[in-house]
Amino acid sequence: MQDRIRIILAKLGLDGHDRGIKVVARILRDAGMEVIYLGLRQTTAGIVTAALEEDADAVGLSMHNAGHLTLAPAMVKALREADLNIPVIIGGIIPDEDRERLTEAGVAAVLGPGASAEEVVQAVRQAVARQSDGGAS
């Protein structure tokens, strides 16, 4: 059954750069997805609550504060602890050299600056498809 993808978009921590996340929200909406937009200043706990209440298929985080190496793995861990087997996708200012560490920490996809609309949509679709193939409940 081809369900409409429901994705949570949020920014963790204090960083207030929301230009990118707003553009991504529109890109995903225009690709037919339902975007649950949490916006700025979210905590991992708040995102977990939203993910379970909204039965979200994925969590997208936008990061511009160089805190991705601490915050993204924390998000993955919080979701796993809540037994939520959904992919975490991050975008923003992420140096290439950090990609591997993020993937190792369980981040499903990393979108750097300048990723095209198609790349963003594909990354979400593939991450969701992979996760449901991977035996999610």
Binding site: R4, G32, E34, V35, I36, Y37, L38, G46, A50
Partner: peptide
């Protein structure tokens, strides 16, 4: 047009 949506009501409730 696309059936997609941006649902933002949680922001002011959460």
């Amino acid at each position: 047009l696309t059936g997609g949506a941006i649902l933002g009501d949680r922001i002011r409730m959460d």
